[in-house]
């Protein structure tokens, strides 16, 4: 049997896991609703922070409010969706520490999809919807000169962003295969990365900007695409086509994250008994 048909046949199995998760969460109905509402909070705060900044200044790193909001929108739409779908891979630490990953590994399904689907935090759905909403509003108020290319870019970039942030989540979570206390290190790159992409890159400087923006690729999922959408030249001097490279950064990142994950699973040590 060809490998891909073999994998394809697992589809219903993953749906079953999702159904199980939905049913489990529904068994705690009240707290689910509370979670759903309170989860919007974090993303609202991100947006408010930027808006509050513009109460005290007219420009942020050379960009006005509507322009900065496009970056906020691209960042929060991508991050919130990735957080919904992949963010829970952080629970890997618990699975490794308690040896619960054993139970995941004896099932006839991929370990990563199982982990994501079994604990899919449906309560974060509200946040993802809000994040997408921020992007739509930001694009609408920025009064862009829409071309077919820019429409494609506006769709493609958040999707690439989801893949990119997802890869960061997986790669940093994989650290716990070797180092169980890796939680805060991971957060520096996931939540730190989100914060980095929320603001125009021009507000950062030096090695920090170079490392996050170019070394790790965070610059390519919100700042440069936003420039391309707004039709602005890069104050830092990169050419215009850089705004289109988000998928080209996201896919290798995903491949790398998958490799780290697979390598990590082989190094899983389980626990005594």
């Amino acid at each position: 049997m060809a490998e891909w048909t073999y994998r394809l046949r697992r589809g219903p199995a993953y749906l079953a896991l999702l159904r199980g998760q939905a049913r489990s969460q529904a068994s705690y109905r009240t707290s689910f609703v509370v979670d759903l509402v309170s989860n919007v909070g974090a993303t609202v705060l991100d947006v408010l922070t930027v808006l509050v900044l513009f109460r005290v200044t007219r420009e942020l790193g050379g960009f006005d409010r509507t322009e900065a909001m496009v970056m906020v929108g691209l960042s929060s739409a991508a991050f919130a969706a990735a957080d919904l779908m992949v963010g829970n891979v952080e629970s890997l630490r618990q699975y490794v520490r308690t040896g619960l990953l054993d139970a995941v590994l004896v099932r006839p399904l991929g370990a990563l999809p199982q982990l994501l689907l079994m604990d899919l935090p449906l309560r974060k759905a509200s946040r993802a919807v809000f994040g997408a909403g921020v992007l739509v509003v930001a694009l609408a108020t920025a009064e862009l000169a829409w071309t077919p290319g820019r429409v494609a870019l506006a769709v493609l970039t958040p999707l690439a962003g989801v893949v990119f942030f997802g890869a960061i989540f997986v790669a940093t979570a994989s650290l716990s295969f070797w180092w169980i206390d890796s939680g805060e290190v991971g957060a520096a790159f996931t939540y730190g990365g989100r914060d980095f992409t929320t603001y125009p890159m021009t507000v950062y400087s030096g090695w920090f900007r170079a490392l996050f923006a170019y070394g790790m690729g965070f610059g390519f999922v919100s700042y440069y695409p936003a420039l391309a959408l707004l039709g602005r030249a890069d104050p830092l001097g990169l050419p215009g086509w850089v705004g289109w490279v988000a998928p080209g950064v996201a896919l290798p990142a995903a491949g790398l994250a998958a490799a780290v994950w697979r390598f990590g699973v082989r190094h899983y040590r389980s626990t005594g008994s």
């Binding site: 046949r9 219903p12 199995a13 749906l15 079953a16 896991l17 159904r19 199980g20 049913r23 489990s24 068994s27 705690y28 040896g99 619960l100 054993d102 139970a103 004896v106 099932r107 006839p108 399904l109 008994s273």
Partner: peptide
């Protein structure tokens, strides 16, 4: 092709009735 019972690591859905776990496992194992 194998079945595993690790006493401390449950294969069952903690919050669901046994019947539901069995039903989900039917899909997981096709």
């Amino acid at each position: 092709r194998i079945g595993v019972v690790f006493g401390q690591r449950s294969q069952l859905w903690w919050d669901l009735p046994l019947r539901d776990s069995f039903d989900l496992l039917r899909h997981v194992y096709r």
